[in-house]
C-alpha cells in the first residue's frame, strides 16, 4: 500500500474526486465523474509525479443501477496499481469520453466494453461490435441480460431443479430424447 500516492492524488485532484481515495492490498482506487476522464487520465499520464504510462486494463461494469468504466494504470513511481473508476454513467445512455488519444491500444478494449455493455466512448473512431455479430442487438454483460438457462445459477439458494412443476409440454414433445421406439 502506497500512502504517498494517496497523498499526492488528494493534493492534485482534491475536490474533483467523488469520494475518498481507497486503498487495499496493492491497489489504490479513485472515483471521478465521466466528464473528467480525459483530464484526469492525461494528468496521470503526463505529470512527473504520477507518470502512469501503461494502461493495464479497461473494463466496463454494470452495477445494476449505473454503469462504470474502470481503468487500471501502472506507473514507475508507485508500487500500486491505480484504479480510476468513472462512476455514475446512466444505464439508459452511458457515454464517456474515449481515451484513445492517450493510449491508442485502448481502442479495442473500448470496443469490447461497447459490445458487452453498450457504453459509448465518444471519440473512438472504430466503435463497433467486436465479439458479437454485427446484427446483434443486446448487450450480454449487462445485469438485465439473463442467461436463458437459469439453472446454471448458484446452488446457494437451495436445490436446483431439473423438472420444474409447470404446465405440461405439448403432446409429442419431451425434453429428454426417447431412444426406444
Amino acid at each position: 500500500m502506497d500512502a504517498a500516492l494517496k497523498r499526492r492524488l488528494e493534493a492534485r485532484f482534491g475536490e474533483g474526486l467523488q469520494g475518498p481515495v481507497r486503498q487495499r492490498h496493492d491497489e489504490t482506487e479513485i472515483r471521478i465523474a465521466p466528464a473528467q476522464v480525459p483530464d484526469v487520465l492525461r494528468t496521470l499520464h503526463d505529470e512527473a509525479d504520477f507518470h502512469f504510462q501503461l494502461l493495464a486494463d479497461l473494463a466496463g461494469v454494470d452495477t445494476g443501477t449505473a454503469m462504470q468504466v474502470v481503468y487500471h494504470l501502472w506507473s514507475t513511481t508507485s508500487s500500486d496499481w491505480l484504479r480510476v473508476i468513472a462512476d455514475g454513467l446512466p444505464r439508459e445512455d452511458p457515454r464517456v469520453p474515449s481515451i484513445t488519444f492517450l493510449w491508442r491500444g485502448a481502442e479495442w478494449m473500448e470496443r469490447e466494453a461497447y459490445d458487452m455493455f453498450g457504453i459509448i466512448f465518444e471519440g473512438n473512431r472504430d466503435l463497433r461490435r467486436i465479439y458479437m455479430p454485427p446484427d446483434y442487438t443486446s448487450f450480454p454483460l449487462r445485469k438485465d441480460f439473463y442467461l436463458p438457462d437459469d439453472a446454471a445459477r448458484s446452488p446457494g439458494g437451495g436445490v436446483r431443479h431439473m423438472e420444474q412443476p409447470e404446465a405440461p409440454l405439448a403432446p409429442g414433445k419431451t425434453l429428454v430424447r426417447r431412444t426406444r421406439a
Binding site: R24, A56, D57, V61, W81, S154
Partner: peptide, 29 residues
Amino acid sequence: RAFATVEAPRGQYSIYAVSDGTDQPFRFR
C-alpha cells in the same frame, strides 16, 4: 474489488473481480 495480474508468457494477464457479498463474482473481467 480486486485486481490481480501475473506475467504470463504473452504478457500481463490480469483479472479484475468485483464481489457483491454473494458466492459468485459480481463482475469478472
